[in-house]
Amino acid sequence: MAERQVKVTTDVGLHARPAAVFVQSAAQSSEDVTLAKFDPAAESQNRVNAKSILAVLGLDVRNGDEVIIASEDAEAVDRLAALVTEETS
């Protein structure tokens, strides 16, 4: 399992437009891909299906949030991490 925790630097986080791009990129993987908004106070992180736009919008990821991206597909994890850490969205 590949897993990366990154800080979201895109200016509006994962709102409709960037979320759609994120989900479409996740959907290119044949493996399951999960996304969680890192909560340091939680015992276990709430991981959602990164291929679902409803689930990703529901996380309400904003600029400055830390997210955890995980999959058996390490390339997908790197690709998605790059998407949320771009300087401009």
Binding site: A16, R17, A19, A20, V21, Q24, I53
Partner: peptide, 11 residues
Amino acid sequence: PDPVFAEGMVG
């Protein structure tokens, strides 16, 4: 007037 919506990428 936004290609991501216009092309149905959001849904």
